[in-house]
């Protein structure tokens, strides 16, 4: 959620077209460069299908190079860490969910945890 907000903010700051629903439905399109290769790589890395991941990695490498693949793997890894940290911490981002985040949650079909409501 917070990083869907960051995605939106980075796209707005760079005049990149974005329908945030691409986050939950990778068949949607968006203006982020090479979004298709990035999403395919992410999904195969998280699912753990090594054969599919090998193919996705090479497709991604073809468009963003070695450095881009390193950074992509690092970003996915970082959020594997942050998701586990924040889910266990049970942090509330403010006393109540702000209206903007609530709208974003609706768009992403996400239900706020009980302790946020």
């Amino acid at each position: 959620m917070a990083h869907s907000s960051m995605l939106r903010a980075s796209c707005e700051a760079n005049q990149i077209q974005l329908d945030v629903s691409v986050v939950i439905d990778p068949t949607q399109s968006c203006g982020v460069t090479h979004y298709r290769e990035l999403l395919t790589f992410t999904d195969n890395l998280l699912v753990g299908d090594s054969e599919a991941l090998n193919g996705a990695r090479e497709q991604l490498r073809a468009v963003v190079g070695d450095e881009g693949v390193i950074r992509a793997a690092g970003a996915v890894g970082t959020f594997q860490m942050m998701n586990r940290a924040l889910d266990t911490l049970g942090a509330q981002l403010g006393k109540e969910l702000n209206p903007e985040l609530r709208l974003l949650a609706d768009k992403l079909n996400m239900t706020p945890p009980a302790h946020w409501v």
Partner: peptide, 12 residues
């Protein structure tokens, strides 16, 4: 924007 797309998809 590419980095945040990866982050958002992972969190999802």
């Amino acid at each position: 924007s590419q980095i945040e797309l990866l982050a958002a998809r992972t969190s999802n």
